[in-house]
């Protein structure tokens, strides 16, 4: 069972991530984390006639791969928690329409992976699911079309803009197993510091990330130095600078921080401006890099945050500022109870 301390849920018997899968597109395959992906596509259309169908297919591959790695069939899964960036969460809905399994659709923009993983851990810890899948995706072309301009339109990207990842990540969460383990979850609070620039999402999300980290540290009494790494979802270059500034003002210096948006792509050679973003960005980095490192024992204990900008094209055009959200999941390679008894 879990106990609640402030906004943080602590699992006495931490649920385990029994299997995970990461799928990516062409640019992700040219990035520094390429070797960690289970499947990479050269052609981002995935032989589909629309970008939306391509994302659905991407997500489907990720789900099937994860089950394959766990040597499971879908009937052993109690619930799928899935989300994406498309209007009305259609990439997930259309993926799951072909599968006979309970499905709860989530929308937390780019924060969806930590949200889904956190919820799956809660349900697994309470014994309400035997196995749950947390799954998210994003597709550069589908997102560009929805949030910005047509792909072939000759626009210039600002240095603060971020590149939506064409990627998906999936985690199979179950009450017991050999790890990696979900030790705690902090669901974030919405923070809006008045940023209106749709090409500066990192700036819009950094206060939410800072707030959730502070909340977790207050709730648990932990110090940032106790973790091997603190990962944020997709703050990019600008958001990372701002996160450090905001936490510095609170007396916290982050020395072990890394941002998934800066890990997924090589900023110098890949022309992604301020870094990667999208619901698939943190999901893919989690499943292609962080979880494998935890499993291999190269990382022992980390904080993983996914950060989301909760605006739409409509609210942006209506000159609304951009609310941000960040959810946090504490992950460990080994069960702390076993470590203590050993």
């Amino acid at each position: 069972m879990a106990t609640r301390r402030g906004d943080t849920l602590l699992f006495a018997k931490p649920p385990t991530i029994a299997a995970f899968g990461a799928v990516g597109g062409k640019k992700e395959g040219e990035g520094p984390l390429a070797a960690g992906f289970d499947l990479l596509f050269e052609d981002n259309s995935l032989q589909q006639d629309t970008w939306e169908k391509a994302e659905t297919t991407l997500q489907r591959h990720c789900l099937e791969l994860t089950l394959q790695k766990a040597q499971l069939t879908l009937d052993k899964v109690s619930l799928v928690l899935a989300g994406d960036l498309q209007n009305q969460c259609t990439a997930s809905g259309y993926d799951l329409r072909g599968l006979d399994v309970p499905f709860a659709g989530l929308y937390g923009a780019c924060s969806t992976m930590a949200e889904g993983l956190g919820l799956a851990a809660c349900l697994a810890s309470a014994g309400l699911v035997d196995r749950a899948l947390a799954l998210t995706s994003s597709h550069f072309c589908a997102a560009e079309r929805q949030f910005r301009t047509p792909l072939e339109y000759g626009g210039k990207r600002t240095p603060t803009a971020q590149w939506t990842a064409t990627a998906a990540g999936c985690c199979l969460v179950q009450p017991v197993g050999n790890g990696p383990f979900v030790r705690a979850v902090t669901f974030g609070r919405v923070r809006d510091y008045g940023v209106t620039d749709i090409n500066n999402m990192g700036a819009a999300m950094a206060p939410a990330a800072a707030n959730t980290i502070l909340q977790y540290l207050r709730d648990t009494g932990a110090r940032p130095g106790q973790f091997d790494a603190i990962y944020t979802g997709d703050l990019g270059l600008v958001g990372t600078r701002l996160l450090h500034e905001l936490l510095s003002a609170e007396g916290i210096e982050l020395t072990n921080h890394a941002d998934c948006g800066l890990l997924l792509f090589d900023q110098k050679t890949q022309q992604v401006q301020a870094g990667g973003s999208g619901a698939g960005c943190s999901a893919a980095v989690l499943c292609a890099h962080i979880l494998p490192e935890l499993r291999a024992g190269r990382l022992r204990r980390v904080l993983f945050l996914s950060t989301g900008a909760l605006m739409s094209q409509t609210t942006f055009l209506q000159k609304e500022s951009i609310p941000g959200i960040a959810h946090l999941v504490e992950l460990a390679g080994h069960d702390p109870l076993e470590e203590e008894t050993a």
């Binding site: 603060t160 008045g194 940023v195 500066n200 700036a203 600078r241 701002l242 500034e245």
Partner: peptide, 11 residues
């Protein structure tokens, strides 16, 4: 924060 954003955003 708005001033920090100005400073952190590359022109």
């Amino acid at each position: 924060y708005s001033a920090l954003v100005q400073k952190a955003s590359p022109p």
